[in-house]
Nucleic acid binder design. Structure first.
Length: 234
DNA sequence: ATGCCGGTTACTAACCGA
């Protein structure tokens, strides 16, 4: 099973059709689109996903202009809600797909990120004991490792998540590599798109990698993150 | 290293974004 997250940038605009087609070309069974917006461009994206078999959607109901997160699945799923998010509910789309929990996130900026990190820290321990993935645009990373300097707010939450038992799946497999999923106008790189796995899910991961070509094409300012899972035994 | 930039939409202003 392949899970892909990619930030569409401001809903997509004129890029929406090509963005969705390029996302499909990455072969997702589950797609998590961050900075997704309800409205005509959002509908355009959903139509392409549907036409390509990703017919199940999880998305918090939001005003059209709000950047949110859309989860789309080829496999039937039930939508769950991260109640601890409160009025930041649009920042998470949670699909239960069989025994798998996929929680797609789009984090806010600066100090506002704390509310979403705190909500994750309050997730029921049972979810951590299951096969669960927290994936999306965290707008955060580790100082001097996921960026060349020390600018991230909330970087300490990466320690907190790992203390709780979540694994930064890409970092655990690339302990010292600097690879960036977003670049500022000045050319500074940041790794801000992530996938954190519960122990049970981490054991199922065959590979986790970034696709930078989809950013370099200009269809988004983010690279895509691709997680491949072994088939479930049960 | 945020918004002095750049993209998107309720579109010729307001908003949002690491």
């Amino acid at each position: 099973m392949r899970i892909v997250t990619w930030n569409v940038r401001h809903g997509g605009g004129t890029r929406a059709q090509a963005f969705a087609e390029t996302l499909i070309s990455l072969g997702p069974d589950v797609a998590i689109i961050t900075e997704f917006r309800n409205g005509s461009t959002g509908e355009k994206i959903k139509k392409v996903l549907e036409q390509n078999g990703l017919v199940h959607f999880c998305h918090a109901s939001t005003p059209a202009r709000l950047n949110s997160v859309l989860l789309s699945s080829r496999i039937e799923c039930s939508e769950r809600e991260l109640a601890s998010l409160g009025d930041e509910g649009h920042r998470c789309a949670w699909a239960q797909i069989g025994e798998l929990n996929v929680l797609g996130f789009y984090f806010p900026q600066n100090r506002a990120k704390e509310a979403v990190f705190d909500a994750i820290c309050r997730i029921d321990a049972r979810i951590l004991s299951e096969q669960s993935l927290l994936i999306g645009d965290f707008n955060t990373g580790r100082h001097f490792l996921d960026e060349n300097a020390r600018t991230f707010y909330c970087a300490e939450y990466f320690d907190k998540l790992e203390d709780l038992g979540w694994t930064d799946t890409w970092r655990s497999r690339n302990p010292t590599t600097k690879e960036f999923s977003w670049f500022s106008a000045a050319g500074n790189g940041f790794r801000i798109d992530h996938a954190f796995a519960s122990p049970g899910l981490d054991a199922r991961i065959l590979g986790v990698r970034y696709d930078h070509s989809v950013r370099e094409s200009g269809l988004s300012d983010h690279s895509a993150l691709i997680v491949d899972l072994a088939n479930s035994n049960s």
